[in-house]
Computed example of a mutant assay.
Amino acid sequence: MKGESPSWPPAASLLEEAADLLVLHRDFAGAVRRCEAGCERLGCGAESSAEVKCSLCVVGIQALAEMNRWREVLSWVLQYYQIPEHLPPKVLELCILLYSKVGEPQVMLEVGSSWLRDQTNKSLPEYSSLLELYLLHVLLPLGRFEGAEELVQGCDALDSEQQQAFLRTICESRCQWTQQKEMHSGGEEQQDAAAETVLGSLSQKLLTMLTLLRRALRSMSSHFYVLPYKKMLLATFLLYLVVVRLDPASPTSLPFIYKLVQLFRQAWTAVFSPMHRPPIQN
């Protein structure tokens, strides 16, 4: 009947179809649909179906990543395992590596911590390798050194030699982190010093410019009362050139100011007749 849901084959067959769609046909959306159908068919499932369910999730994760839908991966997986502690080691490993690769290790912070602190998971043979993976790709890149030490020291699943090896790794990472932070801080201080030098030079130029501008304004202000409209317009235009059009940071600013003052004097001489020309103050 048209519109009915397709009758999906058993989960193992769906896994085979999903793998073919992912690898051979590059049909990532189709692979995800097969994985979802297989996981729903299995449900909580029995122990014998756990491996098939894990494989379906692995194929689904890869297909989602290929479609650049990596942000959905963790929530997509957890809908089939409910709580982080129940994630299979292979699925947890793939999630840690994926979110580390895309630069979002903090996504796995709580999930990884919950899984590693679970007593049942501590008895798994993959526990030690997953702990190392979590340290190297989640805690240490995020600078969570104290949390890393606490996790290692409180883990009774590790022997003394393993604990010491992990603690040395944490110590080395902390030293590298500190060195990088100091180098970054030193680079910022050098940039600040260079900026202060540039600002000091600009301040001297600006002070000289303002001195010349004050001289021109003082000369202009003493004669505003005798200026008719056109002469006032000329003075306003000259002031506009100084204030608006002049870039005080430009190396050519100061010669331009000197020329502008001379231009103002010439304009003043040309505008006023000798009889009515007020004295120009220096």
Score class of each variant (00 low, 15 high):
Thr211Asn: 11
Leu151Trp: 03
Asp27Cys: 01
Leu167Tyr: 01
Tyr240Asp: 07
Lys2Val: 15
Ala11Asp: 02
Leu24Phe: 10
Val198Tyr: 08
Glu161Met: 09
Thr120Leu: 15
Cys95Ser: 11
Gln62Tyr: 03
Ser7Ala: 14
Ala249Trp: 07
Ser7Trp: 13
Gly154Asp: 05
Gln153Val: 09
Leu92Pro: 02
Ala249Ser: 13
Glu66Ala: 14
Ser203Val: 03
Asp247Met: 00
Arg26Cys: 09
Leu131Glu: 07
Val23Gly: 00
Gln153Trp: 04
Leu116His: 06
Cys35Ile: 09
Met209Gly: 11
Thr169Ala: 04
Leu206Cys: 10
Trp70Gln: 03
Ser128Tyr: 14
Leu14Tyr: 01
Arg265Asn: 11
Leu151Thr: 06
Tyr127Trp: 14
Pro278Phe: 06
Pro274His: 08
Glu149Arg: 12
Val152Ser: 05
Pro255Glu: 06
Leu217Phe: 04
Leu202Ile: 14
Ala195Asn: 12
Cys54Trp: 03
Trp268Ile: 10
Leu133Ile: 00
Glu104Asp: 08
Gln281Ile: 11
Ala19Val: 09
Trp115Thr: 02
Asp156Lys: 11
Gly112Ala: 06
Leu97Asp: 14
Leu94Thr: 10
Phe224His: 09
His223Pro: 00
Gly45Val: 12
Met232Gly: 07
Thr252Ser: 10
Glu66Tyr: 06
Val138Glu: 05
Leu87Trp: 01
Gly186Lys: 08
Phe28Gly: 04
Gln180Trp: 05
Leu140Thr: 00
Gly3Asn: 04
Cys175His: 10
Tyr240Met: 06
Arg34Ile: 06
Leu133Ser: 07
Ser123Leu: 15
Ala148Tyr: 02
Arg41Leu: 15
Gln163Ser: 13
Ala63Pro: 00
Pro228His: 05
Leu22Thr: 04
Ala235Arg: 08
Leu238Tyr: 14
Asn282Tyr: 12
His276Lys: 10
Met1Lys: 04
Pro255Val: 01
Trp8Arg: 01
Tyr240Trp: 13
Pro255Trp: 02
Gln204Ser: 14
Leu254Trp: 03
Ser129Asn: 12
Ala46Gly: 15
His223Cys: 12
Ser253Val: 09
Gly43Met: 09
Leu14Lys: 03
Trp70Asp: 01
Leu98Glu: 03
Gly38Trp: 07
Cys171Ser: 10
Gln163Tyr: 01
Leu199Arg: 15
Val77Glu: 04
His86Gly: 06
Val52Met: 01
Leu21Ala: 08
Thr178Met: 10
Ser7Val: 15
Cys171Leu: 15
Gln82Tyr: 01
Lys90Leu: 11
Ser7Ile: 14
Glu66Trp: 08
Pro125Asp: 05
Asp27Val: 04
Tyr134Cys: 02
Ala193Lys: 12
Leu130Met: 09
Cys175Arg: 12
Ala63Gln: 00
Leu158Ile: 08
Gly112Ile: 01
Ser201Glu: 15
His184Asn: 10
Cys39Ser: 12
Leu98Cys: 04
Ile96Gly: 02
Gln106Trp: 13
Gln62Trp: 05
Cys35Phe: 00
Leu14Ser: 06
